[in-house]
Amino acid sequence: MSTARTAIVTGGSRGIGRAVAERLAADGQAVGILYSGNTAAAQETVGAIIEAGGKAIAIQADIADPEQVSAAFDAITAEFGHIDVIVNAAGIMILSPLAELDLDDLDRMYRTNIRGTFVVDKEAAARVRDGGAIINFSTSVKKLGLPGYSAYAASKGAVDAISAVLAKELRGRDITVNAVAPGPTATALFLDGKDAATIERMSQMNPLGRLGTPEDIAEVVSLLAGPGRWINGQTLYANGGMV
Rank of each mutant, 00 (worst) to 15 (best):
residue 164 A to V: 15
residue 114 I to K: 13
residue 81 G to N: 04
residue 202 M to F: 10
residue 109 M to A: 05
residue 149 Y to E: 08
residue 152 Y to T: 08
residue 93 M to S: 13
residue 100 E to M: 10
residue 141 V to M: 12
residue 200 E to V: 09
residue 157 G to R: 03
residue 99 A to R: 10
residue 194 K to I: 13
residue 75 A to K: 15
residue 76 I to V: 02
residue 107 D to E: 10
residue 147 P to E: 03
residue 143 K to Y: 06
residue 129 R to Y: 05
residue 212 G to R: 05
residue 127 R to V: 01
residue 193 G to F: 15
residue 203 S to A: 12
residue 167 A to E: 02
residue 203 S to L: 06
residue 77 T to G: 15
residue 181 A to F: 02
residue 164 A to K: 11
residue 170 L to V: 11
residue 86 I to R: 09
residue 211 L to K: 15
residue 169 E to I: 00
residue 77 T to L: 10
residue 160 D to M: 02
residue 193 G to N: 09
residue 161 A to K: 13
residue 99 A to K: 09
residue 145 G to K: 05
residue 116 G to V: 07
residue 199 I to M: 05
residue 187 T to W: 05
residue 167 A to G: 08
residue 135 I to K: 00
residue 204 Q to K: 10
residue 111 R to N: 13
residue 107 D to H: 14
residue 168 K to M: 12
residue 138 S to E: 05
residue 105 D to V: 09
residue 142 K to A: 15
residue 190 F to Q: 08
residue 92 I to G: 11
residue 167 A to S: 08
residue 99 A to H: 08
residue 111 R to G: 10
residue 165 V to C: 08
residue 170 L to T: 10
residue 180 V to Q: 04
residue 155 S to T: 14
residue 153 A to C: 06
residue 192 D to L: 10
residue 208 L to N: 14
residue 186 A to H: 01
residue 90 A to M: 02
residue 87 V to M: 00
residue 198 T to S: 12
residue 189 L to N: 09
residue 100 E to T: 15
residue 162 I to G: 12
residue 197 A to Y: 13
residue 190 F to T: 11
residue 102 D to T: 03
residue 133 A to P: 04
residue 128 V to T: 06
residue 187 T to V: 09
residue 121 D to G: 00
residue 194 K to M: 11
residue 91 G to W: 02
residue 159 V to L: 02
residue 131 G to A: 06
residue 130 D to K: 10
residue 161 A to W: 09
residue 190 F to S: 11
residue 131 G to K: 04
residue 175 I to K: 01
residue 136 N to C: 03
residue 79 E to R: 13
residue 111 R to T: 12
residue 198 T to A: 12
residue 183 G to R: 11
residue 117 T to D: 03
residue 82 H to R: 13
residue 137 F to S: 07
residue 143 K to T: 15
residue 184 P to T: 08
residue 113 N to V: 05
residue 101 L to Q: 14
residue 195 D to W: 06
residue 115 R to Y: 12
residue 195 D to F: 04
residue 129 R to N: 08
residue 147 P to N: 05
residue 113 N to K: 02
residue 79 E to P: 07
residue 211 L to C: 15
residue 199 I to Q: 02
residue 178 N to Y: 00
residue 192 D to W: 11
residue 117 T to P: 05
residue 208 L to H: 12
residue 91 G to F: 04
residue 141 V to K: 08
residue 113 N to D: 03
residue 133 A to E: 00
residue 154 A to T: 05
residue 119 V to C: 01
residue 156 K to I: 12
residue 132 G to K: 00
residue 207 P to V: 06
residue 102 D to Q: 01
residue 189 L to Q: 09
residue 207 P to D: 07
residue 155 S to N: 06
residue 139 T to D: 05
residue 176 T to C: 07
residue 84 D to L: 00
residue 92 I to T: 15
residue 148 G to P: 00
residue 88 N to G: 03
residue 148 G to A: 01
residue 129 R to F: 02
residue 145 G to D: 09
residue 211 L to A: 14
residue 177 V to N: 02
residue 85 V to T: 00
residue 171 R to A: 11
residue 156 K to Y: 09
residue 118 F to G: 05
residue 77 T to K: 12
residue 106 L to S: 15
residue 197 A to Q: 09
residue 168 K to W: 12
residue 180 V to P: 04
residue 122 K to S: 14
residue 79 E to H: 07
residue 115 R to V: 11
residue 86 I to C: 08
residue 161 A to N: 14
residue 139 T to I: 02
residue 150 S to G: 06
residue 148 G to Q: 01
residue 123 E to H: 03
residue 145 G to L: 13
residue 123 E to N: 03
residue 105 D to R: 04
residue 118 F to W: 07
residue 210 R to D: 07
residue 112 T to A: 13
residue 174 D to R: 10
